[in-house]
Amino acid sequence: MSKRVYISADYSQYNGDRDVVEELQKWGNDSLHKVDFIDMSSVAAGSVASDPDCRICDLKAEFNRQINASSAVIFVVGDKTRSRTAGQYCARAFLETCYGVYCTPYKQNSSGEKPCKVVNTFPTQNNNVGNINSYSYLRHEFEQAVSRKKDIIIVYNSTRYEHDWLPAYMKGYEDVASPFWTINAIGQRIGNYMYVKKALGFE
């Protein structure tokens, strides 16, 4: 049994949640459970982002494509998740024209701002969330997963239930969120995969 699962997480180098993603990737590579984990950082480092003129809206459109191709989405929630704003600044989201609108290409801050390249906008189709919006990257991924009715799995980067960490847009999902880590018999912190395995249909 093989599944394609998208992972949304805060990849900040110093206080993000990469440790959870790395543990999930290890599990996905085992010989028993065949899971193709697609994480946000891989998407952001892929062919779309390699374009020197890649914009916030281009990344969000690629997130949509990857989420649509997945059967489930895992959201890793850490103590900084609710305060993350990366991806939310898009002046075009509030205007009907691109005239006079500028944005900074992704990872090209040193190159300064460039004129908005989206001349015309169109209504979204197939329940996709529009890629021109004022959502952070993390919120955009969540809204897309909800809109496309994907199986949503939420794990806290903690050994405890941390409902206060949930962003406002995840309100109502407290009952399906679970700690990712547990403490074993010798006091080591290890990944608790029971919740994830059950949600993915492996138990």
Rank of each mutant, 00 (worst) to 15 (best):
I67V: 12
K107V: 07
N68K: 15
Q13H: 14
A93R: 14
R18Y: 01
V101H: 05
I186T: 02
A185K: 14
R65A: 14
D10A: 13
A199R: 12
P167T: 05
T121H: 09
D19G: 13
A44M: 14
R4M: 01
F122K: 13
T81Y: 14
G78H: 12
F63A: 09
D175Y: 02
M1Q: 13
S110E: 05
N192A: 13
G187Q: 11
R55P: 07
I74R: 11
C103L: 15
F180W: 08
V129N: 07
E203D: 11
E143W: 02
W165I: 03
G187I: 09
Q188C: 11
H163F: 05
L95R: 15
P179H: 04
Y156I: 10
L166V: 09
S158L: 02
C90W: 02
Y161N: 12
N133Y: 04
S31V: 07
A72S: 13
S147Q: 05
E141L: 02
N131S: 15
K26E: 06
V176I: 14
K34F: 06
Q88C: 15
S41H: 04
N131F: 14
F202D: 01
P123L: 09
N128E: 09
S8H: 08
F37S: 03
M194R: 14
Q125W: 00
A45W: 00
K171R: 12
R82L: 06
V119P: 01
K60P: 06
G46K: 12
H140T: 02
D17W: 03
E162R: 13
D58E: 01
D58R: 08
V176E: 00
P52F: 09
W181S: 10
M1K: 14
T97D: 06
K117E: 00
N29F: 07
R148A: 08
E203T: 13
V73T: 15
F202P: 03
A86D: 02
L138M: 13
P52M: 11
T121K: 15
Y14E: 01
G87S: 06
N133I: 04
K197D: 00
Y11S: 15
C90A: 14
V119F: 10
D175S: 15
V146T: 05
K3G: 03
V129Q: 09
S42M: 13
A177F: 01
E174N: 06
Q125C: 09
A49C: 11
D51L: 08
L32G: 09
A49P: 10
I153S: 01
V76M: 07
S47C: 07
I190Q: 14
I38F: 07
E96A: 15
R84G: 07
C57D: 04
L138V: 06
E174W: 01
S136E: 01
R139M: 14
S31Q: 03
G100Q: 04
P123H: 05
H140Q: 08
Q13T: 09
Y106K: 13
K117I: 06
I153H: 04
Y193H: 03
T124L: 03
K3N: 06
G28E: 01
Q108C: 10
W165Q: 06
Y89G: 09
K80V: 04
Y161P: 01
D36W: 01
S8V: 08
T124I: 02
S70E: 00
R65M: 11
A93Q: 08
N128T: 03
V119T: 10
T81P: 11
S70T: 07
K26D: 02
P179Q: 00
A91I: 03
N68G: 12
G87Q: 02
D79T: 10
L138Y: 10
E162S: 13
D10K: 13
